[in-house]
């Protein structure tokens, strides 16, 4: 299976005042196969949105490589990258800010088609605009209206329709449902799941909401301070986490069927990303940290169940396991 998107050692640094440097993304690698949904989860500020923005060239990465369909795209100029915009699109977090208040919905949906040369104008794009409104379950009459006439959920449907306009192979959903009410959130996630099944879309689903990730993701990558802590199938990572951070994150998500377990709950705040701890970035909050963790930075090591974790002392594998775990030296 050849990957649609391959990200290798991606780095992004921001220069702060007084010569301080914030390493938002510190060597992140992952791949997404055609039609696959990879969820990127983690606390705020862990660099997950920066990765999405790098993929769409809203930020330029400082290191590593991004390959799309086997072609390297991170070094391309703005003009050379344009053809790829037909293949990778984005759904933004804030459905209020991401739609131009002065444009009609028809113009908003036609913009990618016109900009990328697939239509000559909004009139020309109209059949596709109506088709898109059908796809996101919006009435066709919405085309003539302006964003402020719609609710947050409806606006996000419009945002999704815009991302789908040019028939991309991959869409990056940057916290696409975080700003919505709970009931609306479920509708939009279901819509995304349906569209993905209908269109065979691949997605990079950036979120901090594990319940939603569980609903939509095939694979999950957990990030902490700019690095991937654990990555693997959703079943393995969310069902039986091996990295202490994943475990803490899952323990922090309230569940109906089990009380919160204070033993594994994370305490404290994430450290200052501009001055990460030595060795393992998570050691300052890790219940399993030992001396070695302060010295040596753990690398991602394949473990059981098709997942890899970056931890010297991973949580024990689940008692009943079908795949033998690779022991970490």
């Amino acid at each position: 299976m050849s990957a649609l998107l391959e990200v290798e050692g991606l780095e992004k640094r921001y220069r702060l005042r007084r010569g301080r440097v914030l390493q938002a993304v510190a060597g992140v690698s992952f791949a997404i196969a055609p039609g696959e949904v990879l969820a990127l989860v983690g606390e705020s500020g862990c660099g997950k949105s920066t990765i999405g923005r790098c993929l769409l060239r809203l930020e330029s990465p400082d290191g590593g490589s991004i390959r799309f369909g086997g072609e390297r795209v991170d070094r391309l100029g703005a003009g050379a990258f344009r053809p790829y915009r037909k293949r990778i699109q984005m759904v933004f977090q804030d459905p209020y800010g991401s739609l131009d208040p002065r444009m009609r919905v028809a113009d908003i949906l036609a913009e990618p088609l016109v900009s990328l040369g697939l239509a000559r104008g909004t009139g020309d794009a109209m059949p596709r605009v109506l088709e898109l409104l059908d796809m996101v379950r919006m009435p066709r009459s919405a085309a003539e209206r302006r964003p402020h006439e719609f609710s947050g959920g409806q606006r996000q449907r419009i945002g999704i329709a815009r991302a789908l306009a040019v028939q991309p192979e991959l869409i990056v959903c940057d916290e696409a449902v975080s700003a919505l009410d709970v009931s609306v959130k479920a509708q939009i996630v279901n819509l995304l799941a349906d569209l993905r099944a209908e269109l065979g879309l691949a997605m990079l689903f950036i979120s901090h909401d594990l319940a939603i990730v569980e609903r939509i993701a095939d694979r999950v990558a957990v990030m902490y301070l700019g690095r991937i802590a654990e990555i693997g199938t959703a079943e393995a990572v969310l069902g039986a986490p091996r990295h202490p951070y994943t475990r803490g994150l899952l323990a922090a998500a309230p569940r109906i069927d089990a009380p919160l377990d204070p033993a594994v709950l994370l305490t404290g705040e994430p450290p200052d990303p501009a001055a990460p701890p030595s060795g393992c970035r998570f050691r300052t909050r890790c219940p399993r940290a030992q001396d070695r963790c302060a010295v040596e930075e753990p690398q991602l090591v394949p473990l059981d169940g098709g997942r890899a974790a970056a931890c010297h002392f991973p949580e024990p594998a689940p008692a009943r396991q079908d795949v033998p775990a690779l022991e970490v030296p």
Binding site: R57, L58, R85, F92, Q93, G97, L99, M103, E111
Partner: peptide
């Protein structure tokens, strides 16, 4: 965000300024 959305939609700078 809608300006960033226009960039990801492939709009060029003059188009972003005018539209």
């Amino acid at each position: 965000l809608y300006v960033q959305a226009a960039i990801t939609s492939g709009a060029r700078t003059p188009a972003i300024l005018i539209r």
